[in-house]
Amino acid sequence: MYKALADAIRDAESQGTTLARVALEAESRDQGRTVDDIRSVLHRALVVMRGAVAQGLTGDLRSASGLVGGDAAKMRHGAAGPLSGTPFREVLARALAVQEVNAAMGVIVAAPTAGGAGVLPAVLTGLADARGLSDDAIVDALATAGLIGAIVAERASLSGAEGGCQAETGAAAGMAAGAATEMLGGTPSQAGHAVALAQQGTLGLVCDPLGGLVELPCVFRNATGSAIALAAVEMALAGITFAIPADEVIDVMGEIGRSMDVRYRETAGGGLAATPTGRRLARERLVQIKRSSP
């Protein structure tokens, strides 16, 4: 697999093809599997993603602690805001939906992780459905997203415990932004700028879930991460470029993660988890989970 996005962009552009194509071919070479085989695995992932979106939008879910659930349905059916009727609002609803399913022990695709699982399905299916694109187009986009994620894993990290939330929902935003840009007709180079634009917007983001549970703020971080991805797609498709290449933005994300205090790396020792309300809620809810557990 590629270790630099710049190399993948160069190969795709010199061959007059897409990042999705070069990613599938690299995976095929590495793993000794056919491109069709890899696409069929990605297609199964898409089916699970769509299932999680649908389940989350019903609004019937509650997490173990009761801290999250039901907000995706509000985004769908609640009062109109300035984004009402746009794909943007639908993407936010779907991001909340998938992450609420995750918190309620539903079935999701950990892409790149369970905690950041809402961004990719929300952005890709939300935009594809709004444009009437086929599932094949989304499967290609998942290949592009996988390529970007593999590069982040190689150069930085995809773990909140290692790199903070910038490595989970931040990486997810970068993956979704690059993949969606290409899915909507952008060039490989534009997709690269979308990755950089999204990732720069999440640099420094800490991982600070209440009580250490993948619930709050994780559900909402997936929605705001998706919003950042959409902003990056919109800018990249308009022809805006980001002066620092994506690979260097990813490198610095890794560096920031490594120097991040342990309190901000999934330990519930800092950030929102350590606020007075965060501590109180975690205490109350953990007691409640214990009571409901045998």
């Binding site: 995976e27 890899i38 995750n102 022990m105 695709v109 699982a117 290949a143 390529l147 994620g149 993956m175």
Partner: peptide, 14 residues
């Protein structure tokens, strides 16, 4: 790193 490790696994949360 495999692309399919990134887009997966399919799992019960959280």
């Amino acid at each position: 790193v495999s692309l399919l490790d990134i887009i997966g696994p399919v799992m019960v949360g959280p």
